[in-house]
């Protein structure tokens, strides 16, 4: 891909993989954020006046792909999004986020109506300094965790980025406008799809490797067509997610907002199916705690809930049945 920048998105893939591997050895979330920040990955989308690189969203895709594949235990998605969202309006804050000084997350579920309330689905909130909370009017506020905002551990499906609940009694802090929040949510749809792509591709690679190694009935598993076809279907699933992400970010995409939403909805179903199939191919071994396929599955399902895949599907239905698609078509035509 040619861009007006000296770099291409693919240039980040190897660095991201190496840093994610290093993160696996690091002891705490703070250590991992420091490693990511040192490599410049947290600030890829932040403005260049805010310790970032000011790059377009495509550049974050290979980084989050590596994070998904490598089961990164850090709120990298949230950090990237908030460093970008505060750039331009609150540069000091954006800088502190981009360089890893302020560790942030987002409570993806729930809205505040006033200064107090409870929100949840905030990955790794226990290890963060502040959490972004959405408000009923569409705007959002970055609340410092502590006295007025208490983090409560929650039952969590995701093991790498355990979710927490946040009980807020006094919401104060820097704000994001409704417009910025809409944009943040849209970018999050694409970047979450990149995380899912990484998790799905790693599941598929592990399943392919296992099937070519494990022998039953005197032959490797992959010698059986049923197994080949399982793997091929998951390859189609992975390539479907990859191509849809690429399309959503292409300057030639006619309706990028619809495309991003469909990419995310599609990725959640296809990504989960790929991890589930990989577990099936591993047999009893796939059901063990130590084989990390369940981690990918848990992660994908959690991302689906954080990104509200089910509600988004309802919004597609609403748009379709209201005739808005047809109206949009006509508008495009005129």
């Amino acid at each position: 891909m040619t861009t007006e920048y000296d770099l291409s998105p693919e240039d980040f893939a190897d660095t991201a993989k190496a840093v994610v591997n290093a993160c696996a050895e690091a002891g705490t979330t703070a250590d991992r954020i420091a490693l990511l920040a040192d490599a410049g990955l947290t600030g890829i989308l932040a403005g260049d006046s805010c310790g970032g690189m000011g790059l377009p969203v495509d550049f974050a895709v290979p980084v989050l792909h590596a994070a998904g594949a490598g089961m990164l235990a850090a709120p990298l998605l949230e950090t990237m999004l908030l460093a970008r969202a505060f750039s331009g309006t609150q540069d000091d804050l954006a800088t502190a986020i981009a360089i890893g000084h302020t560790k942030v997350t987002i409570a993806w579920n729930g809205e505040l109506d006033g200064a107090a309330g409870t929100v949840d689905r905030a990955p790794l909130a226990e290890d963060c300094d502040a959490v972004l909370v959405f408000r009923r009017d569409g705007s959002a506020i970055l609340v410092t965790l502590g006295a007025g905002a208490e983090v409560m551990a929650e039952d969590t499906l995701d093991l790498e980025r355990p979710e927490a609940r946040v009980v807020i009694t006094a919401a104060e802090g820097p704000e994001l406008s409704a417009e910025t929040v809409t944009e943040l949510q849209r970018i999050a749809q694409i970047l979450r799809s990149a995380l899912i792509l990484g998790a799905a591709e790693d599941s598929l690679e592990r399943a392919c490797e296992y099937a070519q190694d494990r022998r039953q009935f005197g032959k490797t598993l992959v010698s059986y067509q049923a197994i080949q076809h399982h793997l091929a279907r998951q390859c189609l699933a992975v390539e479907t997610i990859r191509n849809s992400i690429a399309r959503s970010l292409s300057p030639h995409c006619e309706m990028p907002v619809d495309a991003a939403r469909a990419t995310f909805i599609g990725a959640t179903g296809l990504g989960a199916k790929t991890a589930e199939t990989a577990i099936q191919i591993f047999g009893g071994m796939g059901y063990t705690w130590d084989v990390p396929l369940h981690r990918h599955l848990r992660f994908v399902r959690t991302l689906a809930a954080q990104g509200k895949a089910a509600e988004l599907l309802d919004s597609v239905a609403q748009q379709l049945l209201s005739g808005d698609n047809i109206k949009k078509e006509l508008q495009r035509a005129s």
């Binding site: 399309r247 959503s248 292409s250 030639h252 619809d258 909805i265 599609g266 599907l313 379709l320």
Partner: peptide, 12 residues
């Protein structure tokens, strides 16, 4: 409708 968008992703 989602599948149609995903299909466009393959084609484009």
């Amino acid at each position: 409708a989602v599948n149609i968008e995903l299909l466009k992703g393959h084609v484009e």
